[in-house]
Simulated scan of single mutants.
Amino acid sequence: MGNTDSKVDFRAAIAQLAARSQQIESNDESFWDQFWSDKISNVQDIFALVPAAEIRSLRDESPSSLAILCNKLVDRLQQAAEHSCQTERDQIAAINCVRLLTRLLPYIFEESEWRGFFWSDIPNGQQQTTTSNGDYLSKPPLAQRLLQTLADLLFCPDFTVSSKKKKGPDNPEDIHTIDSCEYIWEAGVGCAHSPVHSPSNDRHRTEILKLLLACFSETIYMKPSIELQSYPNKWLNYFTSSDNRQTLPLFTSLINIVFSYDPVGYLPYNYLLFTDTREPLVEAAAQLLCVTLDNSSSSINEHISSSSSSTSKMSIGDEGSNLFINYLSRIHRDDL
């Protein structure tokens, strides 16, 4: 009964957001917190409670509310990543933000006037953010913040990868200081030993990869003759460039997960006995590999400048090039 009431509350929040008669203030945190709270336990709930017609109505009739919601979702994702998703509350919030963005993005892309929203300049008064040291940093476009946060979350200890340290509040692992190459998902290229397998990590990875696929899907909503030539896929260009500090561990993780997967395993018809969390992950990883490797660097018309002054020590190749293709060309065996 309680779970049903929670879903009703979530549905009411969606309806309230879409109502033209009532504008929700951006600082009404108690209202916005409803969208990533523990009321929602799976992605099926998101798709059932947020129908397509209502998203289109929100986009067309209350565009400012949709814009605020997207900003709030990305901000909450960043907040969870900044704390390395060390608490259950942050983990639930992060995965629910991922689910809701996965639901919203296709309906944003299908409207041409909205496609530049995630890459638009930050409104006046919001261009800067304050660090813990009191320094001011310029905020990059929403899309860059989202892509880098998702890439970082794919190597977040005890959320998408197994921790290498003892658990506990005195031994937290900082997502921003760890060497992500030590957390490659599976043995193979760049990793000699298979890490501990965790079904929850697989599920979280799968949902994040599906959101990345949704981000990269902007191209399919464009007219092939005109729009595709005028507007390169900035999402893919940024994600596969040296601006993304996780390109190398992510590429090797995707490659290793796909090519190490045994769909049969040691027990035939094992899917009848237990849920295989690895198969959906492999499917999403294979799709993401196809998309990123198909994004040829020769089609990039402009380089998306990095939001940070330094690039990862793992990054190689010229700025603006597709590092996924670069890394693929360098795979070799030392014993040959």
Rank of each mutant, 00 (worst) to 15 (best):
I175R: 12
S84L: 01
E54D: 12
A192T: 05
Q229A: 09
Q128M: 07
P195Y: 10
Q148D: 15
D9K: 15
A284D: 13
E82A: 08
I24T: 07
S41D: 04
D276L: 04
A143L: 12
L211R: 08
S312F: 01
N71S: 09
I178W: 00
S297F: 02
L272T: 15
L336F: 11
K7S: 03
I14M: 09
S309I: 02
L323H: 02
L228R: 15
T252F: 02
T275A: 05
D294Q: 12
W235N: 15
Q22F: 12
Q79M: 01
L213K: 14
S260T: 04
P195G: 07
T4H: 10
N3T: 11
L254I: 01
R145A: 06
D334A: 06
K234A: 14
H332G: 03
S62H: 09
R333S: 12
C85G: 11
S315T: 05
L105H: 02
S6Q: 13
C215A: 10
L209H: 13
S298Y: 04
V258P: 00
R89W: 01
S299W: 08
F239I: 02
L154F: 10
Y183W: 09
F259Y: 15
Q229I: 03
N171R: 07
H332L: 10
I92N: 03
S253P: 14
V74F: 06
L150H: 13
Q86N: 12
E61H: 08
K210C: 09
K223A: 05
V282M: 08
M314A: 05
L248H: 05
N96R: 13
G125L: 09
S162L: 07
P280E: 04
I226E: 10
D334F: 05
K39T: 06
S299D: 14
A214G: 12
K72E: 14
V196M: 11
L289R: 10
A52S: 13
K72N: 15
R330P: 00
N256S: 02
K167F: 03
H176S: 10
Y271N: 06
E319R: 15
V161M: 00
K72T: 15
S65T: 06
S242G: 09
A13N: 04
E61D: 14
E283Y: 08
S321V: 08
N3W: 09
A81K: 05
Y107I: 00
E207W: 07
S194D: 08
D9E: 14
P51T: 00
P51R: 02
R333T: 10
E25T: 06
A143P: 07
D45N: 09
E82V: 01
N326M: 01
D38M: 02
L211W: 04
I257A: 03
D276I: 07
T252Y: 09
I24P: 03
N256H: 06
T240F: 07
E111A: 00
L69P: 06
V264L: 06
E29Y: 15
P232W: 12
Q128H: 13
R205M: 14
D60W: 00
H193A: 05
A214F: 01
D174V: 03
Q23Y: 13
W36S: 07
F31P: 00
S132K: 14
C181M: 13
